[in-house]
């Protein structure tokens, strides 16, 4: 589903990713961990196609040209950095944006689409906020709205960049429940996180990064919290 072969990426003169090789199979829940500045978010941005690699190949759905498959991909960015709280958009309008790629140009939203919005908001316990301005919601509720936007299109590849940062425990619980539901539907999930609990409980594959390189790729069984802390604190 996702394959990176010798991928490197630099910001001007700072190397962010060095010769990354990895493979994520269909239906896997893959977690990317590592200290701040280790290249996790850059790796996700390269997989998403936001950044083009300086070197190497990114294959999605087995192909180098991903344009035809983009509608099957959903991305949940780091909320705080991407969203202006004063933006005049309601919860309903935000979630509908998730359907824009599928609708294509020239087509408006149907009553079926609005029904889908109600269903997903119900699932995420957000239905009472449907007409509310997004910026007026709490951090956790906003994050759930972003997740609703990502899930409404029923993606085959779901990419999340630190979805649990700054959210309440209720939102976190709902998020993981939904991720497991998606996994059961054979959705491939790639998630950057610092949440050790999630890593141990849910992940099929764990990618540990440091200084733009992959240190190890292992399963949840082989993953040791002690080793993980070493990555963080050995400096």
């Amino acid at each position: 589903m996702v394959e990176l072969i010798n991928v490197s990426y630099s910001y001007e003169d700072k190397v962010a990713l060095k010769d990354i090789n990895l493979k994520i199979e269909k239906g896997e829940l893959c977690v990317i961990v590592g200290p701040n500045g280790s290249g996790k978010s850059t790796l996700v941005s390269v997989i998403c196609g936001i950044y083009k690699p300086d070197k190497g190949v990114v294959k999605l759905f087995g192909k180098e040209d991903h344009n035809h498959f983009r509608k099957k991909i959903s991305f949940v960015p780091q909320k705080v950095s991407s969203f202006n709280q004063l933006f005049p958009i309601s919860v309903k309008e935000t979630v509908l944006l998730g359907l824009v790629p599928q609708k294509g140009y020239f087509k408006g939203f149907s009553s079926q689409d609005l029904k889908k919005v109600d269903e997903i908001l119900q699932k995420l316990d957000l239905i009472e906020f449907k007409e509310k301005q997004l910026g007026k919601l709490s951090g956790g509720q906003q994050q759930r709205v972003f997740i609703a936007r990502a899930l409404i299109s029923e993606p085959e590849l779901l990419i999340l960049d630190e979805p649990t940062v700054g959210i309440d425990s209720k939102s976190e619980e709902i998020l993981y429940k939904l991720l497991l539901e998606q996994k059961a539907k054979n959705t491939t999930i790639v998630m950057v996180t610092h949440d050790i609990f999630a890593i141990k409980s849910y992940a099929d594959k764990i990618i540990c990064m440091k200084d733009g390189e992959i240190l190890t790729i292992c399963g949840a069984q082989e993953f040791s919290v002690k080793k993980y802390k070493q990555i963080y604190f050995e400096d």
Partner: peptide, 21 residues
């Protein structure tokens, strides 16, 4: 015609790009 697409790129350009806009 481009009402919803323009709103998407104004709100979250990265996510719009990822999903093929």
């Amino acid at each position: 015609l481009f009402r919803k697409e323009l709103l998407y790129i104004c709100f979250d350009e990265d996510s719009a790009l990822v999903s093929g806009i």
